[in-house]
Amino acid sequence: MIDKIIEIWVDADSCPVKQDILAVAEAHNTVVHFVASYAHSLSIHHPQARTYAVDSEFQSADMFIINHVKPDNLVITDDYGLASLALEKRCLAIGTRGKEYTNENISLLLMSRHVSAEIARAGGRRRGPGPLRKEEIARFRQVLQKLLHRLEGD
C-alpha cells in the first residue's frame, strides 16, 4: 500500500505561524509549500519546506496556490477568498488563528468581509485583528493537528 501524500500550502506573505506549521508538519512527515511575493523575504530552511516567490501583483500568491493544490491538500490562509476557492477544490482550509473554514461558514465570512469593505469605502473605520495571542497559536496548532489526522484517515 502506498502512503497518502499530504501537502500543506501556506499563504506566507504575512503568516505569523510559519514555525508552528513546520513543527506540526515535521511530526506528520508532511510537505509544506510556502508561497509569498518577491516583496516578502522567505528564508525558511527545513527539510519539510518548499518555498516559492511570486509576483507582487494583487492575488499572485493566492492564484499560485489555487493553481497547484489538489483535493485533500490543506491550505493555511487568512484570506477568505482563497479559503473559499480551496474548499471548492475539495481542500481543507484553516486561518492562522485556528479558524477552520468550511462549506457551512465560508459564505457568512465572505459576506462579513464584503460588508466591512463597504463600510470602509463609505468612510467608516475598520478594526483589524489584534496581535496574535499565545492561546490563538495553541488553538491553531490543535486545529492543524486535527485536520492532518483527518487527512491521514486516523
Rank of each mutant, 00 (worst) to 15 (best):
I65Y: 01
R127E: 11
K89Y: 10
S84N: 13
G123L: 13
N103H: 14
N67Y: 02
V69N: 00
L132S: 09
Q142W: 00
F34R: 11
R141V: 03
E57N: 11
S43E: 12
S112E: 07
V24W: 08
L87K: 08
A61Y: 01
P129N: 10
L132K: 03
N73D: 15
L82Y: 03
N29H: 14
S84Q: 09
I66V: 15
Y101W: 13
D78L: 00
V24H: 06
Y101G: 03
F64C: 09
N103V: 03
A120V: 12
P47T: 13
I66C: 03
F58L: 12
N103T: 07
L110E: 07
C15D: 04
G128N: 12
E26M: 12
R139S: 05
S112M: 08
V24P: 00
L147C: 10
R126H: 07
D79K: 02
A23M: 10
S112N: 12
T102K: 14
D3N: 10
C15F: 05
N67S: 14
I137C: 11
Y52A: 10
R113T: 05
R97A: 02
R113M: 04
D78K: 00
R126F: 06
E57Y: 01
E104W: 02
V24D: 03
H45R: 15
F140V: 08
K4H: 13
A49S: 14
K89T: 04
K70L: 06
K4D: 07
T77G: 00
K70P: 05
N29R: 12
G95S: 15
G130P: 08
T96F: 04
S56Q: 05
K134M: 04
L82S: 03
F140Q: 01
L92Y: 12
D55W: 03
S56P: 02
S56A: 08
N103Y: 05
V143W: 02
D3I: 11
L151V: 06
K18A: 07
L22H: 12
V10R: 05
R126S: 13
L108N: 13
I5Y: 06
T96K: 03
G81W: 07
L109H: 06
D11K: 09
F58V: 08
L147N: 06
G95F: 04
